[in-house]
């Protein structure tokens, strides 16, 4: 039963991106009379901008983590924490990302790129990392921007609730990926 579910999932997941690419422009053109080509180009220009904007973050994080790994420090850190993490089934390689995620979007994207680059996009570690990245937010940043914009100083339970959501999201990412791709 469970295995067949995973099979169905893996077969049907192949269609997610192709269907999105086919259905969105079709729907927009036929039902909404959107000027598909012009709008596409307008949106696509953002791809260029965002890619350029993330370069400084990527340089900072990839250099720091690259040096950290080459010095052997990352290995020492991982060998320290992995016994505890193995007990709960959490891959030690994903820990830095989990800690960085609520603090910095650029930084955690840098760590995600590092893991994808080191282990390959088809590895379990990269899939867990991508799921973590996609299913949580930079809580501190969102809180600072949104509360800051209206001058709220006492945030009450918003921070704790946000962090609880992050922790649940991070652990869910690990266990869901282990179940689906493990």
């Amino acid at each position: 039963m469970i295995e067949s579910f995973v099979d169905i999932f893996n077969t049907s997941s192949k269609y997610v991106i192709p269907i999105l690419l086919a259905v969105i422009p079709f729907y927009a053109l036929v039902f909404k009379k959107v000027k598909v080509y012009e709008v596409f180009v307008e949106g696509a220009q953002d791809g260029f901008k965002i890619a350029i904007q993330i370069i400084p973050f990527l340089v900072a994080i990839l250099v720091a983590i690259g040096m950290f790994r080459a010095s052997g420090a990352l290995e020492i850190l991982i060998s320290f924490i992995s016994p505890i993490l193995n007990a709960i089934g959490f891959p030690a390689e994903n820990v830095l990302l989990a800690i960085m995620r609520p603090l910095s979007g650029g930084g955690s994207f840098g760590l995600l790129s590092d893991l994808v680059d080191k282990y390959g996009p088809d590895s379990l570690i990269a899939k867990i990392a991508a799921t973590m990245f996609g299913s949580t937010e930079t809580t501190f940043y969102v809180l600072a921007v949104y509360f800051g914009s209206v001058g709220i100083k006492k945030v009450r339970h918003a921070l704790i609730a946000g962090l609880i959501a992050d922790i649940v999201g991070i652990f869910s990412a690990v266990y869901i990926c282990r179940f689906l791709f493990g």
Binding site: L112, K127, G134, S135, T136, I164, G169, A173
Partner: peptide
């Protein structure tokens, strides 16, 4: 950014992300 990084593997990440984010939203 995630689609760009994961390439064709992003297909699989869609469902795992939806499931994980549902859990975190319920928790929130």
């Amino acid at each position: 950014t995630v689609v760009g990084l994961m390439g064709i593997n992003a297909n699989q990440i869609f469902l795992s992300t939806i499931l994980a984010t549902t859990m975190s939203t319920i928790a929130a």
